[in-house]
């Protein structure tokens, strides 16, 4: 049991979806790919729901358009690197237009 557990502030970050299309299939796939690297759960939530960040389908069901605010949350402080990576990915607009090699 980590003492960090109760401090959800530290384990979550808010981001604004900056890319032009919102959380569509490719961004969702990229988030899910990162989230799968986490040891424990990674979650994304908006005003209405919280979904499993490692599932593309789950992320898509949120229907997050451009400009919407989401909170990304990890269950375990050990996954802080994953959280940061996802936040960075979202903030840089998923490097849209370029292809992932």
């Amino acid at each position: 049991m980590s003492i960090m557990r109760n401090n959800s502030e530290l384990l979550s970050k808010d981001v604004i979806i900056a890319n032009t299309l919102g959380l569509h299939a490719r961004p969702a796939a990229e988030i899910a790919k990162l989230a799968k690297k986490a040891c424990k759960g990674v979650w994304i939530s908006n005003d209405s729901q919280t979904v499993d960040a490692s599932s593309i389908i789950d992320i898509l069901t949120m229907g997050c358009g451009p400009g919407s605010r989401v909170t990304i949350k990890i269950d375990d402080a050990g996954d802080m690197a994953v959280l940061d990576a996802i936040v960075k990915l979202v903030e840089t607009g998923f490097k849209e237009q370029t292809n992932n090699a």
């Binding site: 599932s55 593309i56 389908i57």
Partner: peptide, 13 residues
């Protein structure tokens, strides 16, 4: 789109 399909195949949901 196919790459996304590949990812969907193993999607939790």
């Amino acid at each position: 789109i196919f790459e996304i399909h590949v990812a969907l195949l193993k999607d939790k949901m």
